[in-house]
Design a protein around this nucleic acid. Structure first.
Lengths: 335, 335
DNA sequence: TCCTAGCCTGCAAGCGCTGTCATGAAGGCA
DNA sequence: TGCCTTCATGACAGCGCTTGCAGGCTAGGA
């Protein structure tokens, strides 16, 4: 900055004021400083400015994973929005128990970011408490946190509409498949299941425990086993609703391998509208992942700027049923 | 830090020395300081330390995208490795032309990271030059940069082996499909095509220009058109080799929609081993995305620590042919 | 012409650390 | 016992910026 000042023939204070767009700089000076800065392709040392302002110009994102489609999409919604806000993106990916313990123990984000976006992260009460005394605004993304700014979709309502869709097609035996989530890492699928069950109840159908399945090892052979179990029931389901598209893809593969026609014999419905859902022709409930990211940044800016009155704001984004080829009326007439 | 010092009854200098693991601290003092730091869950203000050391403890990653499977996987290889190195991960996602111009114009990473990892980014000479006077170590990931530390796979060799596999199955008419890459955004597919053509030549087959296709709008209807064009050739291909798995997935969908059996009528081979390749049963060439990320971090650490003699190091990772269900001998006898 | 009010600009303190240098304590040796 | 060495610790300057304050300059009114 000293260099820029010298080149422009002004003091560093003036350079600083100019670069931050403060109005107390005359037009001619401003022009000269901007020219000098450009010629030297000066970029501010954020460390120095944050030391004095207490603002880092950086936002931290806590993620349970970096490989999932959803998180990638959410991030890609955040990135340009952050850039527009002049904020940088710091990523903390915490995938295993060890990293997790370490993160909450050391809280490395402390003082190194202006806000923490917690994305799809099922927190224990202790962890929640730790974050609270992080001394940093929190924004919860793709999860609802009572009394805290959060961005999410109404999973229960979406699942309700999904199941209704299946009911409207004439299905009466509808199974619900979820991941067996021992680690408690991802956000819970409880609301989706709740919505599903509510739709059944509304339609006067008694939920059957045998039709709610947690699938262990769903990335491996677990899905084949689950399919076998479901279809060998004395009154097998004619439709399968999965907690996520990822699960649905494996399900589709398992059904293909077992030579069970979709939607001829069973219908399949996913949840997410993963990029591949279109390719696979999967009927699903779309959640606007990119928009969730964008909205999260909007909320974050509000929280950082302390434009108060909205601490504790919530943004609920809409989901949409996307009918494609994996759902159809059941093969046998409704009983 | 002052707080910790007071609580431990020592000076800030001692706290600093302790926390950085310098040896000139007595065991008793060390224990006391560590206890105090833990109790206050003190986290260092990196801004302050970087101001004096010139090290930020942060590594920037420049990506053309955040939604692609490959980049997610590479990032998820980097994240734990960086954490182990005590480095934070700063993400610059530059997806459109405007952002791109802005990035290379302002070079926001300057002085805000200890190194820049350039991932899958086809740089213009000007951009390359800009990065060079960024005054920051560069590491090229998933792309080869002569004279610069880089991590990559041998695309040409991999494609060569892929095409050989098809040749061995008896195919003689093999098409190569690539994305129509107007923007020059992603790394070029030149080497993959080169490998493919080399394999053909090796086998004594004259490459046919009509069998090398750039597919515009491949995420939309472009693929259906391309399939139509190829299969209406007077001597249509019996195998299709795509530049990426993503392309192969769309191809598979287009073939399915056109009722063309795979591998009954045509074989399909991808490149990447995308997570979904297993689900789709796609034969492909696996590149170790996660390991690429890890290796990039290894190189980065070496470059930052200036453990010299290895500026200019290259890591070439192996690819592997993964035969699955989309490749088989051609339907008609070899002519 | 002098005074006052604005506008711009520069000066200097200090943000939270690190690293150099100085200091003090403890121990070894003659 | 006295002197020198070694080790552990503290004091302090300064990293590159921001910001409150002071001061200089210009213009307008009396």
């Amino acid at each position: 900055m000293a260099e820029v000042a010298q080149r422009a023939g002004v003091s560093v204070s003036t350079v600083s004021r100019t670069l931050r767009g403060l109005s107390t700089v005359s037009d001619t000076t401003r022009a000269r400083v901007e020219a000098a800065a450009r010629e030297l392709s000066f970029a501010i040392t954020r460390s120095a400015s944050s030391l004095v302002t207490g603002r880092t110009g950086r936002v931290a994102v806590l993620l349970p994973d970096l490989e999932s489609w959803f998180l990638g999409a959410a991030l890609s919604g955040m990135a340009p929005a952050l850039r527009d806000a002049g904020l940088e993106l710091l990523v903390y990916s915490v995938t295993d128990v060890h990293e997790r313990a370490d993160f909450f123990d050391r809280l490395p984000a402390r003082r190194n970011a202006d806000a923490l976006l917690v994305v799809s992260f099922a927190l224990s009460p202790t962890e929640r408490a730790r974050l609270d005394d992080l001394g940093m605004p929190l924004v919860f993304v793709s999860q609802h946190a009572p009394g805290r700014p959060s961005v999410y979709v109404d999973d229960e309502d979406a699942a309700l509409r999904g199941t209704r869709h299946l009911l409207n097609l004439g299905h009466r035996r509808i199974a619900f498949l979820q991941t067996a989530d021992g680690t408690g890492f991802t956000w819970s699928s409880k609301s989706r299941l709740a919505g599903h069950l509510r739709a059944l109840t509304e339609a006067g159908i008694e939920p059957d425990d045998a039709l709610v399945l947690s699938v262990p090892d769903w990335k491996g052979n677990g899905m084949a086993a689950a399919v076998g179990r479901l279809l060998s029931l004395q009154d097998p389901p004619t439709a399968l609703f999965t907690e996520t598209d990822d699960l649905a893809f494996r399900l589709l593969a398992a059904l293909r391998d077992a030579n069970i026609p979709v939607p001829g014999r069973v219908s399949v419905m996913g949840f997410d509208d993963h990029v591949m859902a279109g390719v696979m022709g999967l009927t699903t409930l779309a959640q606007p992942a990119v928009e969730i990211g964008r909205a999260a940044v909007r909320l974050t800016r509000a929280v950082i700027d302390g434009s108060d009155g909205d601490h504790q704001r919530h943004i609920v984004l809409p989901t949409e049923l996307v009918p494609r080829g994996t759902t159809a009326p059941p093969p046998a007439p409704v009983r």
